[in-house]
Computed example of a mutant assay.
Amino acid sequence: MASIAVQREAFDAAATTAALTDGRTDVGAVVTFTGLCRDEAGTLDALEIEHYPGMAEAEIARVAADAEARWPLLGVQIIHRYGTILPGEQIVLVVTASAHRDAAFAAADFLMDYMKTRAPFWKREHRRDGSTGDWVEAKDKDAAAAARWL
């Protein structure tokens, strides 16, 4: 059963991974992905991330269950932050555990492709020059990556 958290607070990737694996001897591979806020060549002051509470968690849990059905996973943990995120700060954490690396890598890749394209989050850039950008759209390359899982 996947553990899903949508939170304003920063997270500890090492502690989250340890909570999933400590005391377990059935896990042979753990893949972690941590997404960070880029400064966009020095132009970004902050990234604003919004979501629908309850809906976001339910939708991420649905996709995590899909990953668990596709691959023999022994654990999944996903944390996504919302609010004001500064350059260099963590945005998202995906942790997958399996007996073997191929399943852990594939599931993490699948989950991140989903998080980049279809997760119910909206992002808007606040620039150092004081301007506010439009809500950020998914990139074509991210959509192409996600399409391989259909």
Rank of each mutant, 00 (worst) to 15 (best):
I60G: 03
T117V: 03
T132G: 06
G42D: 05
Y114D: 07
A99P: 03
A108K: 04
E137V: 14
A64W: 05
I78N: 01
L20E: 07
W149R: 12
K123T: 08
A144T: 02
V27K: 07
A108W: 11
M1V: 04
G42K: 05
W135P: 12
A144L: 05
A15R: 08
V63D: 07
D102H: 11
R128P: 02
Q90T: 10
R70W: 04
A144Y: 03
A2R: 12
T132V: 13
D66R: 06
A138N: 00
I49Y: 14
M112Y: 10
T21Y: 04
A67I: 01
E68F: 05
A108D: 11
I85E: 02
F121L: 05
V92N: 03
Q77A: 14
A106W: 14
M55V: 10
A41F: 14
A65C: 06
A144H: 04
T132F: 07
A138H: 00
H51D: 09
W122V: 03
R70T: 03
D129G: 02
W149T: 02
L73Y: 05
D109F: 12
H100R: 15
A107G: 13
A19P: 07
D66W: 01
T43G: 04
A64V: 03
V76S: 04
A5H: 15
A65T: 11
G75A: 04
V27G: 15
V95F: 02
Y52Q: 00
I49M: 12
A104I: 09
T34L: 09
T17P: 00
A29R: 00
M1S: 11
T117D: 00
T21P: 03
E137T: 14
H100Q: 13
E50D: 14
A13Q: 00
A19C: 01
Q90E: 15
R128N: 12
G133Y: 02
A41M: 10
D109W: 03
A64Q: 04
D26I: 00
L93G: 10
K116R: 13
L150I: 11
G35R: 02
A64H: 03
L111Q: 08
E48W: 12
A69Y: 03
H51Y: 14
A99Q: 12
G54E: 05
K123E: 08
L20D: 08
L36S: 08
T32V: 06
A108T: 12
R124W: 09
A41I: 12
K139M: 07
I78F: 01
F105Y: 15
A15G: 00
A64S: 02
D12N: 00
T84L: 13
D140A: 06
G130M: 04
L74T: 06
F33Q: 05
G88K: 05
A67G: 05
A65Y: 09
D129Y: 08
R118Q: 15
T96S: 10
D66H: 06
